[in-house]
């Protein structure tokens, strides 16, 4: 009797664990990404991690963020195939890296580079309350602010 009861309890327990596990895994990737980009001011989806980028384009974005001393959350798409495809669908953008500021897709490596060069990045960061380290290190020249 005791045995029977125990088996029963275990099976109920197992089921509930499976159920809760499944419901977590079933959260659509779109919703997960939504949460990630809305809960952080700056998010970078990249190949590898900031200390060891595994793609030159991802590395370039990391270097730009470092120059501006931007605090950001990074996600490695190489460690999650679901995320790798999911992020491309989410932003309707075919390549990695991808940068989000304030929940909005800003661009990939080319756009970040150009925004960095034109001074636009400093302005975008200011809008979300991040002061670029370049402002204190080197005051922007007038000619750069076209």
């Amino acid at each position: 009797m005791n045995n029977l009861l125990r088996r029963h309890v275990i099976s109920i327990y197992n089921n509930s664990v499976k159920l809760s596990f499944r419901s977590f895994a079933d959260v659509p990737i779109k919703d997960k990404i939504d949460q990630i980009v809305k809960n952080n001011k700056v998010v970078v989806f990249m190949k590898g991690v900031p200390d060891a980028p595994r793609c030159g384009f991802s590395n370039a974005v990391v270097q730009i963020m470092r120059m501006h001393a931007v605090p950001y959350e990074s996600h490695d798409v190489l460690s999650d195939e679901n995320l790798r495809q999911g992020i491309k669908d989410y932003s309707n953008w075919p390549t990695i890296p991808q940068v989000f500021i304030n929940g909005e897709f800003v661009g990939g490596c080319d756009i970040m580079l150009q925004m960095h060069q034109s001074g636009e990045l400093v302005e975008e960061l200011k809008k979300v309350g991040i002061k670029s380290a370049l402002l204190t290190a080197e005051p922007p020249k007038d000619e750069e602010k076209k």
């Binding site: 595994r54 030159g56 590395n59 370039a60 490596c109």
Partner: peptide, 11 residues
């Protein structure tokens, strides 16, 4: 030219 590869392709 674009930045150099860091080996992430092919994964």
């Amino acid at each position: 030219s674009s930045p150099n590869c860091k080996g992430g392709f092919g994964k």
